[in-house]
């Protein structure tokens, strides 16, 4: 998807690929809401969306092209996203509103919000954390991509976010910390989150070079990766082989979703 331009939000896709895989294949129902608070992560939503027939492969080719519905930073023009994000720190509030709204309408559904660790630097994230816990929004599940990456470099060099699990626990959340590249762990955590009596956060430790670290330089800017044509070809070959080796799982029933691709 980023090969055409030679740059893009590849780091987000690599850090969150397994998160989206676990969420889409195992948990997310057609009636659930999904908020991708860092809109830059739309790239992984598109990639995963193809695998569950949410987005057509042809449409995927239009990523980043003028006039495409797959905008580089996702908006509500994007199929399957419940809010326009990208200005960081806003998504969790909308997710909380959706969760409260679903409760008021007595709708049996979950609201999933992907947020990035950098968004913990925005005060609004903690406003939303207070609100969600106070109103006991147990139909709200946050997937926190703890990839230690932001524009200016590793998050821990920019500011101190640790101890991350303690912070969320102190705000009254159900907290699980997992290896964000271990699909089995993510699936277990997602199932446990659904049973919590409070809003849940799954803190997924991840890496922006995951899966392609042997091809991409260590010093790569995780927020906005540049790749050469040679790196693209090597990555394609690597991923094609990985796909041949992968275990097949059944697709989620995306076509039932309103506006879904048949």
């Amino acid at each position: 998807m980023i090969a055409r331009e030679g740059f893009g939000y590849l780091g987000q896709a690599l850090s969150a690929a397994e998160i989206f895989a676990a969420l889409y294949v195992d948990v997310l129902k057609a009636t659930d809401d999904l908020v991708v608070s860092p809109g830059h992560y739309a790239i992984v939503h598109y990639g995963a969306g193809v695998e569950v027939n949410r987005i057509s492969a042809d449409e995927l080719e239009t990523y980043g092209v003028d006039g495409s519905s797959l905008e580089s930073i996702g908006t509500e023009h994007t199929p399957g996203l419940s809010a326009t994000c990208g200005s960081l720190g806003q998504g969790l509030s909308v997710a909380a509103g959706l969760a409260l709204g679903a409760r008021l309408k007595q709708e049996d559904k979950f609201v999933y919000a992907l947020i990035s660790d950098g968004e913990m630097e925005e005060g609004q994230t903690w406003e939303a954390a207070l609100f969600s816990a106070h109103h006991e929004l147990n139909n709200l599940v946050v997937l926190l991509d703890r990839n230690d990456s932001q524009v200016d470099g590793p998050t821990h060099q920019v500011t101190t976010l640790e101890p991350v699990p303690d912070k969320w626990a102190a705000f009254g959340w159900d907290v699980q910390a997992v290896d964000g590249h271990d699909v089995a762990e993510l699936r277990r955590a997602l199932r446990a989150a659904a049973e919590a009596d409070r809003p849940s956060v799954i803190i997924a430790e991840t890496w922006t070079l995951s899966g392609l670290d042997h091809l991409l330089p260590d010093e790569a800017d995780g927020h906005f990766l540049k790749v050469s044509p040679e790196q693209v070809e090597a990555a394609r070959a690597h991923l094609d082989q990985a796909e041949r080796d992968a275990l097949r799982v059944a697709s989620a029933p995306w076509s039932k979703r309103v506006g879904g691709v048949a």
Binding site: Q90, G97, L98, L100, K105, F131
Partner: peptide, 20 residues
């Protein structure tokens, strides 16, 4: 929504998106 106006606007959006 307590003294959290930024959050409040997002919550309002979520509630509106759910038909309120």
């Amino acid at each position: 929504g307590a003294m959290s106006e930024q959050n409040l606007m997002g919550v309002a959006a979520g509630l509106a998106r759910s038909g309120h």
